[in-house]
Design a protein around this nucleic acid. Sequence first.
DNA 1: ATATTGACCCGGA
DNA 2: CTCCGGGCCAATA
Length: 111
Amino acid sequence: MTAERYRRILQVVAAIPPGRVMSYGEVARRAGFPRGARLAAAALRGANEPGLPWHRVVRADGRIALAPGSPAFREQARRLRAEGWTLRGTRLARDRTLRDPDLDRALWGPD
DNA sequence: ATATTGACCCGGA
DNA sequence: CTCCGGGCCAATA
């Protein structure tokens, strides 16, 4: 069932620690769906759970997926900045101290 | 049942 | 930096 898939995906999202981010594809992969990047996006689009840290999910290249300038976009940007991220345009800057090793490797390669 | 549409991803040009 | 093409998968029309 799809609802079950969504549940597992949102479960992964809920487990992302403050100050760290994960790509849609990575979220899906950890939820057990290797090629479910779009599935993760769909799950987030529908879900409106109170404490869900949806803002910690960004595109694989570090950019915010929401439409630039939209209310949702600004809200995500606001929350990310509140967790210490620097936003260069629509993209996350890499000068972060608390970083996700996996995403880092995917984005910028090993240090 | 077919077609289009996304909060996607990747490699190449 | 952008644009394309192909792949992906559930929701929606």
